[in-house]
Design a protein around this nucleic acid. Sequence first.
DNA 1: GTGGTCTAGACCACG
DNA 2: GTGGTCTAGACCACA
Lengths: 124, 124, 124, 124
Amino acid sequence: MLHLDYRDSRPIYEQVQDGLRKLMVAGVLQEGEKLPSVRALAGQLAINPNTIQRAYEALEREGYVYSIGGKGSFVAPRKEVDTGRRDELMKQLDTCVKELLFLGVSKEELLRHLETAEGGNDHA
Amino acid sequence: MLHLDYRDSRPIYEQVQDGLRKLMVAGVLQEGEKLPSVRALAGQLAINPNTIQRAYEALEREGYVYSIGGKGSFVAPRKEVDTGRRDELMKQLDTCVKELLFLGVSKEELLRHLETAEGGNDHA
Amino acid sequence: MLHLDYRDSRPIYEQVQDGLRKLMVAGVLQEGEKLPSVRALAGQLAINPNTIQRAYEALEREGYVYSIGGKGSFVAPRKEVDTGRRDELMKQLDTCVKELLFLGVSKEELLRHLETAEGGNDHA
Amino acid sequence: MLHLDYRDSRPIYEQVQDGLRKLMVAGVLQEGEKLPSVRALAGQLAINPNTIQRAYEALEREGYVYSIGGKGSFVAPRKEVDTGRRDELMKQLDTCVKELLFLGVSKEELLRHLETAEGGNDHA
DNA sequence: GTGGTCTAGACCACG
DNA sequence: GTGGTCTAGACCACA
C-alpha cells in the first residue's frame, strides 16, 4: 500500500507522510476513517514505531489527520487542512509549470494533464 | 544575483543548484553562456568552493549544464536536459494539482494560475 | 450545555473540568447550585462515569466545588476557591502579557482587550 | 538556568520549550544569539538529546528559533514568530482575565500588573 | 490497546 | 561538531 525507498534522500517519516496524504487525496482513505495504528503500520512497513508516529504528528499539524489518544488516528475533514498547505502547493505548482514550459512542454499538454488529474475523489 | 538563505532548512548546495536552474529557466542565463567559475562564485557568495562544486555537479547530472575540463561550465541546450527531470516534474505537477483540487481549489483558479505562470521566458 | 471535542488533544476529563469551571465563572452555575450527578452527566455526554468523577474531583481540589456524600456536588462560594489557583492564574497572566508585549502587541490593545473581557459576570 | 519539574504533568520537552521561550521573551537570549547545542543542553539538564531536539523543533515551528544543520540553533527575529502564537496567547489572556475577575481580583490590580509586566525587554 | 513521551545509542549530511 | 534521522525498547495516560 505504501512505497518506501531507502535510497531516497527524503527521510522515511516524510515518505510515509506523503504516502498517506496521497491516499487521502485519492479517496482511498476517507474522511473519518481510522488510519492503521502506529504499531501496526510500523510492523507492516518493517520500520520503527517512532518513525510512523512522527509522520502522524506531521500530518496532524497539516490538518490532514487528528489523533485521539488511546483510540487511534483518523482522517480529518478536508476543510480543516491548514491553509498554509494550499499556499505551499500553489508556489510549488508555479515553479513546476515554469520549468516544464521552459523544457518545451506545450501549454496544451499541461492543460490536458490538468483535465486528467481530477479523477479519484468524489467531492462530497 | 543568487539569493542564499542560511536559515532555510535546505542545504546551501541545493539552494545554489535551484537558484542557478531558475536563472536558466527565466532566461537570465542563456544557452551556451559560461557560468561563473567555481572559485569565483564561491568567493562572491562567501561560501566553500566544495559547496558550489556540488551544485554544479548536480546540475550537470540533470543536463542543465555541461563542463569542459579546464574551460568551465556552460548552460546546455534545453533539449539536452535529462528526460527524467521532465518526468519527475510532470509527476510532481500531477500530485500537486490533485491535492489542490482535493482541497477545494477550483479548476478555473488553477487555469488562471497556469496563464500567469507562463511569463518570464521568451524563447522559440 | 457542555461542549466536548473528541478531536481535541486535551483529555476528556479536562475538557469537562474546564467546561464546568467556565460555566461557574460565567455565572451560569451559581453559588450553592447542585451540579448534575456523576451518572446523569455521564449519561448525557455519553461518556464513562469515571471520567466525570475525575473532573469533579479536580474541581473540588481547586475549591470550585464541594461534595456532600450521598447528596451530590455543589458550586462553592467563590471565596473558597483555592488561593493557589489565583496565584497560578496570575503567573499565567504575567507570562502571557510579557510575551504579547514582546511580540509587538501594544499596551493599548491589551487594555482594550481587558475592558472587553470583563463582561459576562454580574456579581458584587 | 532552566527549571525542570518531573512531577509536572507537562512533558519535559514542553517545559524546555516554554523555558527557552521565556528566556527569549525576557531578553536573556537575544536575537541572533546561538542557543546551546542539543547535546550540550541535554547534558546540562541531564536528559536525553532527543527530548531537547523536540523542544527545538517546536520552537522552530513557532518561529522563535531557526536551526542551521551543522551550525546550531539561533534566536529568530521576533517579527517572524508565527501569528497563530499571538492569537493563542490572546485567547489564553481572555480566559485568564475572566476567571481572575470572577475570583475577586479588582480591575485596578490587573491594570497594575500590566504596567509591571513590561520590564525586561528593550524593544530594539 | 492506543497514542504520547522518554531513554540510550547509532549513523548521516552538512560545511 | 552540529542538527537531523532512525532504531529498539520502555513506561504512562486515557477511556
